[in-house]
């Protein structure tokens, strides 16, 4: 009986914690709305539907990257090679369409590149047991050089109009790519939160040894997460090429840090197990909206990094403090309850 009570209390404690994690995403959305409202008070044009749709369109790149990265972060690893993957796949597929190749081929090639880079990362991290931070940092450097060698250090320009057009197609007034990405985010969210295999990712990040004991193929799922991250980075590369219309050798330089920051802002924990793709996507919208918000506020653009940096620090610190306090409280209640049941038994 006592044992059962104990388990019951544990379950209550657990549900409290999941309540808090849900709260995290909720707070991110509130935060995004507050940003829009605050900027909207100063300049009401910012709240125009056109601008909101525009912000989603501008953040597509970041959303795709952040969503892919979330898979890796959920398993408790990190991938900072995404900027390199983006650049290389954009360059290779850019050359294909520039030289008259089909767009379909370019997409396939980009995906293969992303998957390969992810596979190498995944194998290095899981089988050679290299710390994922170091592995992907080294990979970032290597992939960048490969891009320079491939493009001979030149920009890739003169992409055909039909390729550039892809990012501009509108459906019912909304950007087509935007609709696809939003749908994909929702599907991936349902997969990660509701399907058995989707839950594996956060299970691994939450408790790796526990996941092994439960029979989850940890190594395979970690590699899969890196492959997914690589593929989404290469898709982001395609979006980049289509939106910008040319690919410089520095395409995607430093973007990895912005994307990690976006995921963290969206409530994804770098220690694994906590977070969702929806949160990461909202974080990505926040990060990329800072720029346009500054424009609407008539604040010089050079404030961008300061604002995003302090935003990240403040939000994460506040989050951790709130989470810890809630945890402590839950623990205390659990202890109290245990003492009470003991008394009753006596």
């Amino acid at each position: 009986m006592l044992h059962l009570e104990h388990i019951k209390e544990e379950v209550i404690g657990m549900s409290k914690i999941t309540g808090i994690t849900k709260y995290r995403e909720f707070r991110t959305i509130i935060f995004l709305i507050i940003i829009f409202l605050l900027v909207g008070i100063v300049n009401s044009d910012f709240l125009a539907l056109e601008n909101i749709l525009n912000s989603v369109k501008n953040s597509l790149l970041y959303i795709v990257l952040a969503v892919g990265l979330t898979f890796v972060l959920l398993t408790g690893e990190i991938d900072i090679s995404v900027g390199g993957t983006l650049g290389l796949s954009a360059a290779v597929s850019g050359v294909i369409v520039r030289d008259g190749g089909s767009i379909f081929l370019a997409i396939i090639v980009a995906i293969v590149i992303g998957a390969l880079i992810g596979l190498v990362n995944g194998i290095g991290v899981t089988k050679l047991k290299i710390s994922s931070f170091i592995m992907t940092l080294g990979m970032l450097e290597i992939v960048r050089v490969v891009q320079v060698i491939y493009t001979d250090g030149k920009w890739i320009e003169n992409l055909p109009a039909n390729f550039k057009q892809i990012s501009q197609i509108n459906l019912l007034g909304m950007n087509l790519l935007g609709i696809i990405v939003i749908l994909a985010v929702i599907i991936l969210h349902l997969y990660l939160s509701n399907s058995r295999k989707g839950r594996y990712f956060s299970a691994i990040g939450d408790n790796e040894d526990g996941a092994i004991l439960m029979g989850i193929p940890v190594i395979r799922y970690k590699i899969i997460s890196f492959v997914i991250c690589g593929i989404s980075a290469s898709l982001a590369g395609l979006i980049f090429a289509s939106q910008v219309g040319f690919i410089s050798t520095t395409a995607g330089l430093g973007i990895e840090m912005t994307v990690i920051a976006a995921a963290v802002l969206g409530g994804v924990s770098l220690s694994g197990g906590i977070g969702s793709v929806v949160g990461a996507a909202i974080g990505a919208i926040i990060m990329s909206s800072i720029n346009s918000a500054l424009v609407f506020l008539k604040v010089p653009a050079f404030w961008n990094a300061t604002i995003s940096g302090s935003l990240l620090i403040v939000i994460v610190v506040v989050d951790v403090l709130i989470f810890r306090r809630a945890n402590k409280k839950a623990k205390k209640e659990r202890l109290n309850a245990r003492v009470l049941t003991l008394k009753e038994e006596v």
Binding site: L270, W303, A305, T306, G309, L312, V316
Partner: peptide, 24 residues
């Protein structure tokens, strides 16, 4: 505050270079 070192120094990385850019 026991926040992960990676997160804080990432925020710091953005913040410090941001302050430098603002000063300039």
């Amino acid at each position: 505050a026991k926040v992960q070192a990676m997160v804080i120094t990432l925020g710091g990385m953005l913040l410090y270079s941001g302050i430098a850019i603002v000063l300039v």
